[in-house]
Design a protein around this nucleic acid. Structure first.
Length: 726
DNA sequence: TATCGGCACCTTTAGACAGCATGTC
DNA sequence: CTAAAGGTGCCGATA
């Protein structure tokens, strides 16, 4: 189908043609002819990179131009939200205003009212629904990207609830990977269904076993026995490869190993570019290995890397500077990062239940990464059989069908929060109405019988009443209580809120960081570290040493919570180090964690600490305790001791610069306002740009001497910070 | 007696969403 | 519930 023939606004066609697109892919054309443009719901199950985004763009913009209102685009990852936001902004030339909102970004509900397309993570939109801003009723279209995540154990329920809420209130466009029961999903959504495996780049799939590569069409290629030759071969042919493995350690090891083989194939300019790349990376134990691998044009990619490193690697791979990435599943569902050849080294994964086969759906998504649309005629996806039977892998993952999707609404933790929200935020005022709502869900559609779900809902309602989240009157009507409302808005698990509430009496008597951090770490919303076998004794000792500061009693060795408790102690200790200004690198070394792990822990602890303070407010707070908690929250956010809290509010001043300033004698805002530029520049980490920012913020005129100082800037600074850290 | 190599046993294991008020090193 | 790689520590052999 030609773009010109599209039954949409002329301005849309022009923008598409300006992108260099003249014709639509068959599945795109089919989708647009399905009736979506007339307002019908649609489930579109087609491979990644076959143009789902363009279809949704056309549908969104056409609807907005025709009817006004708003479109919401839901994604599963924050990084994906940013990516889509950048893409959609192209439509701003038509007067369509685009916004992103995730936990990282702006959240003032009414602020979003000014925008037409809102890109959001599912959880963020769920949270927005709970706050019910006025503009919600203007939402006329919801696009759910990666809708198959409805079947994800921990996050599926959220998506399912959003769609249950919006079904009938807005048009729904559900974008899915190929799944086993797309019809079922479409029936539920009262939607047209389009399934296709058409791809813009041909995909060849095969299994590699001991040097033999069995293609699905029966052809056979021979390689050296080690699977690494597949990656080396791709680079030899001037292409790139993506290698999926199951553990971080493997990713790092294989990256370094491949690097030595691939560096020989690189040209001088390529090596120089890599050197340049390496010089941009900050030093820590994790990046040391990364740098080693990068010397040969290879990188590993996993959640232990910091954000800066991740984006650096992704960008350099897109530009072709990096030839091979070895990755854990971080990359399997995330960003758009295709490569000529995808090599799947592992098809098993470690979970809470031990080692399990990775679902067909996920392996197929990894394989779908093969082939760069503008550069390759074909893409190759190869599964490596090491100990497995190659025929079995071929049958299961290449010729086999992906799994069916199952509703995960009944997942206890997710359901608990959703039931609470229905009562406190969505006006469900008795059990009958609750059941009424549940009957609209995918769970009900799929299972027909909602008896077990009702049973669970009843248990949760009792739990909520017993713990004063809600009340129930004589006519069995639900009455939301402040604890329930706040818990739902804070978006924390009711169980987390209960733990906080139960701890308040003890906390009031002895507010202290260790006890509070252990409490936070014991919460189901927190990702805790695990104490390794050899660390166990250390953390047990620490727990006994600080026993008086804990708000719980230390579990017995035989207690099933024992192992978890030690992990909580370890997590609490990391947080303790953080607020005592222990340098990051030392934290990585001491606790054997990666930068990404620390970032994650801090992000969660910050959110939960805020929630703790907010909930404490509801229970006749004592002034001094409240102040203590607020101050501890700030220390946690900035990673500083109490005395730096004032400095750290200044722009561009974090824990390091604040400490350097403080030790150099600049202890308050006034100190800085009175300071000479020359003296400030003496402080480690403070350059002319920072001083300008500080003075601007404080409303101080920049004296003329500053220009002169700028020339001198760059020489060695006094080592105040190092001195402190000794 | 110090050092090395082999071998059996032990240990460990992916990822990432949410609040709020504005700017890290 | 369904594994496999890397690390650790012991043992004995060797110089």
């Amino acid at each position: 189908m030609k773009v010109d023939e599209l039954p949409v606004d002329e301005r849309i066609k022009k923008i598409i043609r300006d992108r260099g697109i003249e014709g639509l892919y068959p599945p795109q054309a089919e989708a647009l002819k399905s009736g979506v443009l007339e307002g019908k719901n649609l489930v579109l199950a087609i491979p990644t990179a076959s143009g789902k985004t363009l279809v949704s763009e056309i549908i969104m913009v056409n609807k907005l131009l025709k009817e006004g209102g708003k479109a919401v685009y839901l994604v599963p990852l924050k990084a994906l939200a940013e990516e889509k936001y950048r893409e959609f902004r192209e439509w701003e030339s038509l007067g369509v205003r685009v916004a992103v909102t995730t936990g990282d970004y702006d959240s003032t509900d009414e602020w979003l009212g000014k925008y037409d397309i809102i890109v959001a993570t599912a959880e963020k939109f769920d949270s927005l629904l709970r706050h019910s801003p006025r503009w919600i009723k203007e939402v006329k279209l919801v696009v759910a990207d990666e809708v198959h995540l409805i079947g994800s154990y921990d996050r599926g329920a959220t998506l399912e609830m959003i769609l249950s809420h919006m079904l009938g209130r807005a048009q729904i466009l559900a974008l899915s990977a190929t799944i086993g029961n797309a019809e079922e999903l479409a029936e539920w959504l009262d939607a047209e269904l389009i399934v296709s495996d058409w791809r813009p780049v041909e995909l060849r799939k095969g299994v590699f076993h001991l040097g033999t590569l069995f293609w699905e069409d029966g052809k056979i290629d021979r390689y050296p026995e080690n699977w690494e030759s597949l990656a080396v071969d791709a680079v030899k042919r001037g292409k790139q490869a993506l290698v999926f493995v199951s553990t971080r350690q493997s990713a790092e090891k294989e990256a370094v190993s491949l690097s030595s083989k691939i560096s020989r194939l690189l040209t001088k300019p390529e090596l120089r570019e890599l050197e340049q790349l390496i010089s941009q990376i900050e030093d820590n134990p994790t990046t040391e290995k990364l740098k080693m691998a990068l010397k040969g044009g290879v990188a590993f990619h996993h959640a232990g890397l910091g954000r800066a490193e991740r984006t650096l690697i992704e960008d350099a791979f897109r530009e072709g500077i990096i030839k091979v990435i070895t990755a854990t599943p971080t990359l399997s569902a995330g960003l758009n990062l295709p490569a000529f050849r995808v090599i799947i080294r592992d098809t098993k994964r470690y979970t809470d239940f031990g080692w399990t086969d990775i679902p067909v759906l996920e392996i197929q998504q990894m394989m779908g990464r093969a082939g760069r649309p503008k550069y390759d005629k074909v893409g190759e996806a190869i599964i490596v059989a090491r100990t497995e039977d190659p025929k079995g892998l071929l049958g299961k993952y290449i010729q086999g069908k992906p799994e069916k999707l199952f509703s995960m609404l009944a997942n206890e933790q997710a359901f608990r929060g959703q039931v609470l929200a229905l009562i406190t935020n969505f006006g469900v005022s008795n059990f009958r109405e609750l059941i009424g709502f549940l009957e609209r869900t995918f769970y009900a559609h799929q299972r027909k019988d909602t008896a077990s779900l009702e049973y669970k809902a009843k248990d949760i309602v009792y739990f909520l009443i017993e713990n004063e989240f809600i009340d129930i009157d004589l006519e069995n009507n639900f009455i939301p209580l402040p604890l329930g409302k706040r818990t739902s808005q804070l978006y924390i698990d009711p169980l987390t809120a209960k733990k906080f509430k139960d701890a308040f009496p003890a906390l009031e008597k002895n507010p202290n960081p260790f006890g509070i951090f252990q409490l936070i770490a014991s919460t189901p919303d927190m990702a805790t570290l695990n104490a390794s076998r050899r660390e166990m004794e250390d953390y047990l000792d620490l727990a006994y040493e600080l026993e008086g500061n804990l708000y719980i009693s230390i579990p017995d060795y035989e207690d099933p919570r024992f192992q978890g408790f030690l992990g909580q102690v370890k997590t609490a200790k990391v947080l303790l180090d953080w607020i005592n200004e222990v340098p990051e690198v030392r934290i990585y070394e001491t606790y054997n964690i990666d930068p990404g792990d620390l970032y994650r822990i801090l992000e969660l602890a910050d959110w939960l600490m805020y929630s703790l303070v907010e909930l404490y407010r509801l229970f006749e707070p004592k002034e001094d305790v409240l102040n203590y908690l607020s101050s501890l929250h700030l220390r946690l956010r900035h990673g500083v001791r109490e005395e730096l809290l004032e400095l750290v509010t200044l722009p561009n001043i974090g824990r390091k610069r604040a400490r350097a300033l403080y030790n150099a004698g600049f202890r308050t805002r006034e100190d800085i306002m009175r300071a000479k530029v020359k003296d400030l520049l003496e402080v480690e980490g403070i350059g002319i740009k920072i001083v300008e920012g500080l003075f601007k913020h404080l409303g101080v005129e920049m004296p003329g001497e500053a220009k002169e100082a700028e020339k001198k800037d760059g020489r060695k600074k006094g080592g105040t910070l190092d001195e402190f850290l000794k």
